[in-house]
Design a protein around this nucleic acid. Structure first.
Lengths: 191, 191
DNA sequence: AGTGCCGATGTCACCTTGCGACATGACCGT
DNA sequence: ACGGTCATGTCGCAAGGTGACATCGGCACT
């Protein structure tokens, strides 16, 4: 048989997730993770840039789906972004509430992981903005639409993950988007 | 006289900023910073949680001003947040374009610093949201207003810092806020 | 003045992260 | 069978970050 067990990357991700839940992120060393996966510390660093990355491997896929959806529609920019997030909600998140909650608990327990999550959504926003720009929109419009859509998603996501919630993420996104419209369309004060 | 030079913290901040500009963030070690400030590495870590923090000391003040402004107005939530950011633009940023540009150049050159910046604005957003909630607004409204206001600020700030810009930050904020209204108030598609 | 505590700093030792360089052995095409 | 390649392991090291203890000036109280 093979000299190495298959799917080293997957085993490391799983080991990291387990250990982070068992002992917490800070109390887990990369050597621990590698040991549980039956690998060496150095191998971990060949597959992941750093310890945090082991928890964020899915974000590439997310970006892919979002960019595709935003590119293949001709709705207005904000509507397009919101629709894309709803699609992501259905395709990727819908059946995984418990997993997502566990993962979020880990992230919430460590500032380092929170920073990394912020950066991941940041680069995701950049990718979507670029996709909108490719549709001919100007920089400011593209950025505002994407950032606002992401805000809507974040708020909806927070509600969805909250312990007592049971609405679907996609529905929550639609609700929050409506609320955002209401808030921003109030008349501005006159200078 | 004093046994130690005064303002150890200020000297460390200055030394860090200089060194980050001269050699870049990654190429600067904490020992370097401490040495330039005439202090020890250990002292640096007593005053700053980590190397990145040396560049983000001002964010406390920012938060203070924002919370004050948002609390002392009775405008609608989004308008209140935008107005607060305009005030910050005038009070804190207006006369410091060159400094801000230099600082931003440093941040843009390092992912670690970008993560930290994201987190700083994140906690700032949380503080403003809490201030709005204290005015009796519900969680979602407060969050959306704050996040949207922050988005407007970020976009305006990016334009202001851009090399060829010369409008005032406060004016840019007002312009971008108007654009956001336009984008979100387009009619949503019918399901 | 003497005494003793406190607070800011320095020193030392240590662990962990993250990386470069090199070794090893399984698999693959020829 | 041979040589290359790829994934992994081993070793060593710089830098980030922390705990424990030492040092020394200032301050209060006597």
């Amino acid at each position: 048989m093979a000299r190495w067990q298959p799917d080293a990357r997957g085993r490391l991700e799983a080991a990291a997730f387990e250990l982070f839940r068992e002992r917490g992120f800070e109390q887990t060393t990369v050597a621990d993770i590698a040991a549980r996966a039956g690998l060496d510390k150095r191998t971990f660093y060949r597959l992941f840039g750093d310890k945090r990355e082991a928890l964020f491997s899915g974000s590439g896929h997310l970006e892919e789906v979002l960019v595709r959806e935003v590119t293949e529609t001709d709705a207005g920019p904000f509507e397009a972004v919101v629709a894309a997030f709803r699609r992501v909600a259905e395709e990727i998140f819908a059946d995984r509430l418990e997993l997502v909650r566990a993962r979020q608990t880990v992230i919430d327990s460590s500032p380092e992981l929170q920073e990394r999550e912020l950066r991941k959504t940041g680069s995701l926003v950049a990718a979507v903005t670029a996709a909108l720009r490719a549709r001919g929109l100007d920089e400011t419009t593209a950025t505002l639409a994407t950032e606002s859509g992401a805000t809507v998603f974040r708020v909806a996501y927070a509600r969805w993950v909250a312990p007592d919630s049971d609405a679907s993420l996609s529905d929550l996104i639609a609700e929050v988007a409506a609320e955002l419209r209401a808030i921003t369309s109030a008349l501005p004060e006159t200078p």
